[in-house]
Design a protein around this nucleic acid. Structure first.
Lengths: 146, 146
DNA sequence: CTACAACTTAAAGCTAAGTTTAAGTCAATA
DNA sequence: TATTGACTTAAACTTAGCTTTAAGTTGTAG
């Protein structure tokens, strides 16, 4: 089964322009072309695109994805480099997840802050609040007004 | 205790230009100025900056942060709107965390893929691999070559 | 009171990641 | 075989989020 750029775009939930742009930037070295120059995507291409999507979603810049794809095309001689890239990307993501959890914690506090302010009709309820009326997990945010 | 833009920049780990840019974009309506026009940051400003940092790290665009700050400056009449913004940001983050976990799962599989390939000296080890030699948590990635 | 580092603004410049446009080609259907 | 929708390219344009530059001002230390 093969697909055109438009069909593939729909499958991957991006625009055809985006796929052509990726191709121009060297992200799709695995692509075949028809005699007339039309790009041909197959199941294998789709699985590469999922890998590219993963790297993009984890914040890797287009250029770095290109370098990774270049290594992939070089085959078994570049396994070490490919492993190193994937490992460092995974480690960066684990770190980012921790950072994100901290941000969610702060947003949870702010939700509580505004929920109680809403109930009281004013943010002033927090001005001289007793620490014991604040859930323990929010204590570290107590200096935050608004 | 008060601080200049440069001192604040160091504290917040951004450049002074960035803070001036945020001010220009309306993110810092709480800022005071000296008689000569120098920006004055205080503890309260720092706590606002942490809020802004949180919204930025959770992917909120500068313009949306401005709208949020505008609501904050309007006081108690906008508690509902502020709560709604924070809630939706929190929900978006929780969703993003799930997506990120999926990406980490894929990267973990790729690590395993390259570790075993490295050991074998070739990615070809995966060509006709028996599903029972693949850890169960990686089975959903089995169609992925490289 | 002078020097000088750090501040001010407006405006131009930069990078990433696409998107849009224009002019033309391909290939499946009537 | 003619039509037509989807494809092709190169190049210009867009947006976000800063960063840099240039020209001038502030305020502290000697």
């Amino acid at each position: 089964m093969t697909y055109t750029v438009g069909e593939t775009a729909k499958k991957m939930n991006v625009t055809a322009s985006t796929l052509r742009y990726y191709d121009k930037e060297g992200l799709l070295p695995f692509l075949e072309r028809s005699g007339g120059g039309i790009r041909i995507f197959d199941e294998n291409a789709l699985s590469w695109l999922q890998m590219i999507e993963c790297l993009k979603k984890t914040g890797m810049p287009i250029k770095d994805i290109k370098y990774f794809m270049d290594y992939c095309m070089e085959g078994d001689s570049r396994i070490d480099e490919r492993l190193a890239i994937i490992r460092s990307q995974r480690d960066a993501m684990i770190h980012k997840m921790q950072e994100m959890q901290e941000m969610i914690d702060m947003l949870e506090y702010k939700c509580w802050y505004y929920e109680t302010a809403k109930e009281a009709g004013t943010c002033a309820i927090h001005d001289d609040i007793q620490p014991e009326s604040v859930p323990a997990e929010y204590h570290k945010y107590l200096q935050h007004q608004s």
